[in-house]
Design a protein around this nucleic acid. Structure first.
Ligand SMILES: [Zn+2]
Ligand SMILES: [Zn+2]
Ligand SMILES: [Zn+2]
Ligand SMILES: [Zn+2]
Lengths: 140, 140
DNA sequence: CTTGCTCCTACAGTGACTGGAGGATGCAAC
DNA sequence: GTTGCATCCTCCAGTCACTGTAGGAGCAAG
């Protein structure tokens, strides 16, 4: 076919490494494409779209398990998008949870560093704070 | 000794699982303790302190490699705490970077979910937004 | 003596890739 | 026609920080 694309070209167009594409195939996220006579994978524009979708979802932090479900759902456009929105909602909640946790960590780390006089290790506030969690305001 | 503690007791006191303690020993974070006649590990209060330190640092997100360095440094209290503060500073910067990234993701996910009309998958804004990154304001 | 808990070693599995070995293919230049 | 290089192939090991399991041994109470 004129539209056939090598794995390297697919890699460039979707911004996903060649080894990762093969990994996705083994994991069932990308289909096993037809092969050339020399046993090379032959992709088309549909594969570029699918892989870009995967890449974007991964960048947004969706796990491969959720991704499998999202891909199945998007293959059947007539169904309700309820499950899609539910997955996205759960993920949003997880992201918010992570932000809250990291913000607490940030506070604790800043406080350690601000109060340290930068002298000997024996008097370092960072070491002291690490040794005794009760110095933290129960933030984590 | 009267002060000897089993690995299970150490686990309870420091809030770290037994298997994880053994893993830390193999990884060089915890020393190989003396053993009883029946080949069981015997710990003392110093081990509880060290393991609590490790646990707290891990909860704050320090990697094991940094932790190894922090433990070495805290064993020599006369040296300058510069390296300690540098590790903590680097880690703080990494945490801040993660927060920034996650906040961008949160914005993108919220926007997807808010604009979706919750109808068919074919018109789901979440699927559309995942398929086309140009809908995102270059946030990630 | 038996029950049930703790402990021992050693190894496989997690998630989401990444990197390398060792070889085959494809294509252009000389 | 052959040389050289990029790209491709499969298979496997490694990453991080654990977690869990199998298969056994130790130990105290009833
Ligand atoms: Zn300091
Ligand atoms: Zn703390
Ligand atoms: Zn929707
Ligand atoms: Zn995007």
């Amino acid at each position: 076919m004129a539209g056939d694309i090598s794995i390297g070209e697919l890699s460039r167009r979707a911004g996903v490494k060649v080894t990762t594409i093969r990994f996705y195939e083994g994991a069932g996220l990308m289909p096993a494409p037809p092969r050339s006579e020399g046993d090379r994978r032959l992709y088309d524009a549909g594969h570029v779209r699918r892989l870009s979708f995967i890449r974007h979802a991964r960048e947004l932090g969706f796990e491969m398990e959720d991704l499998r479900t999202l891909l199945e759902l998007s293959d059947r456009p007539d169904g309700s998008c309820g499950p899609v929105d539910e997955i996205a909602g759960r993920h949003l909640a997880a992201v918010e949870g992570k932000i809250a946790k990291l913000t607490a960590l940030k506070g604790e780390l800043s406080r350690m560093l601000e109060t340290c006089n930068h002298g000997a290790v024996g008097e370092c506030r960072v070491i002291e704070a690490l040794a005794d969690h009760s110095h933290c305001g129960g933030e984590h």
